[in-house]
Amino acid sequence: MSGSTLGWTTESRGGARIVAPAGRVDEATATEFTERLREAAAAGGGTLVLDLAGIAYMSSRGLRALTLAQRKGSEAGTTIVLARPNPTMREILAISRYDMVFKVAETIEDALA
């Protein structure tokens, strides 16, 4: 679980921003994930879709980064929506109860709706 880096792509669609990290969010990549996500949340406002399709899994470091980004986002008027979690991520969101504090959408379209 070390030595890995995260992929990161950003796109705009329908007035919203979509960020798509790729890889595993664990101790090795959590700092990078946190910084990039906080930056994205602080810039702009409106809806920020975090496309989880490329995320294999996320430890508590990644989940807590979501909360830090959400705090940053609420100052800037940004709402973070999680989209397309794989079955592992869906389970982790349920076990951590993060599915009760974030909107989780099956598709990007649902996230933008």
């Binding site: 508590s60 989940l63 807590r64 909360t67 951590s96 109860r97 993060y98 009760m100 504090v101």
Partner: peptide, 8 residues
């Protein structure tokens, strides 16, 4: 607590 509770 659950993680979500512990950070909110």
């Amino acid at each position: 607590y659950s993680l979500a509770d512990s950070v909110s």
